[in-house]
């Protein structure tokens, strides 16, 4: 088991018959930081939804030695932390503490352990002073950080993020990029922010019409503007 995820010929069709994924192959090794780029509708979010079994398509998705299928889902969701694009969807409790504690409480950890996990996760994202604040009225940048903490508290091995820098002002964006750089986990980040990709993600995967069309070192892909143009970037 030398990979974190291994996807083989994964296809998915939406109920309205629209093609979401069309034969995706992708392997990510431990410690890799991978960018997932592509135009709107290329299938990035659909792929992300397959990584913790929110959608289950045809083909093989294997995470840390476990096949993504119904009976493994709950185990896998503890290993794969997914941070969604809109933090308002992720922060549904009334205080920051309760939001970050949701995962550990659900896992059945005892109170002491939950408290410890929350404190650790919040300090990793630099939000330890916000523990008793209400999530709803934080700034977007703060909400994004707390969202990341809500999955870090489960101690996942693999972090998946959808558009982490969208909607942030320049300073909040810089701070978030610094934060992402410091996190040790294996990462897959779906984004339109090519500057973020260049700075912290050494490997780039380009999706186009439900397929992986380019997969290689960021240093070769991002400067190639013809290539990017071809795939709507």
């Amino acid at each position: 088991m030398s990979y974190v995820i291994r996807i083989k010929s994964l296809s998915y069709r939406y109920p309205d018959q629209q093609i979401g994924l069309n034969g995706v192959d992708l392997t990510i090794l431990p410690g890799e930081k991978v960018a997932l780029v592509g135009a709107n509708g290329a299938g990035k979010s659909t792929l992300i939804h397959h990584l913790n079994g929110i959608l289950i398509g045809e083909g093989d998705v294997n995470i840390l030695g476990m096949t993504v299928e119904k009976k493994n889902l709950k185990r896998i969701r503890g290993k794969v932390g997914v941070v969604f694009q809109n933090p308002d969807d992720q922060l549904f409790s009334s205080t920051v503490y309760e939001d970050v504690a949701y995962g550990p409480i659900y896992q059945g950890l005892n109170k002491q352990e939950v408290k410890k996990r929350v404190a650790e996760a919040l300090s990793m994202v630099g939000m330890q002073d916000y523990i008793d604040r209400n999530s709803y009225y934080l700034s977007i940048g703060e909400k994004k950080r707390v969202s990341i903490a809500t999955v870090l508290s489960m101690q996942p091995e693999f972090l998946v993020m959808d558009e982490p820098t969208s909607g942030l002002d320049p300073r909040a964006r810089r701070e978030l990029i610094n934060l992402l750089q410091q996190l040790p986990q294996t990462m897959l980040i779906a984004t339109h922010d090519l500057d973020l990709v260049e700075k912290i993600l050494p490997r780039t995967v380009i999706m186009y019409r439900g397929q992986v069309v380019v997969d290689g070192p960021t240093s070769q892909i991002i400067p190639d503007s013809n290539l990017l143009e071809n795939y709507g970037l």
Partner: peptide
Amino acid sequence: EAKRLLVARSSRSSDLPDFHSGG
């Protein structure tokens, strides 16, 4: 929006070996 909330919740509803999950 309601569906996204549900997805975000179930993404964090996980279990561990030897623990009773669910709260």
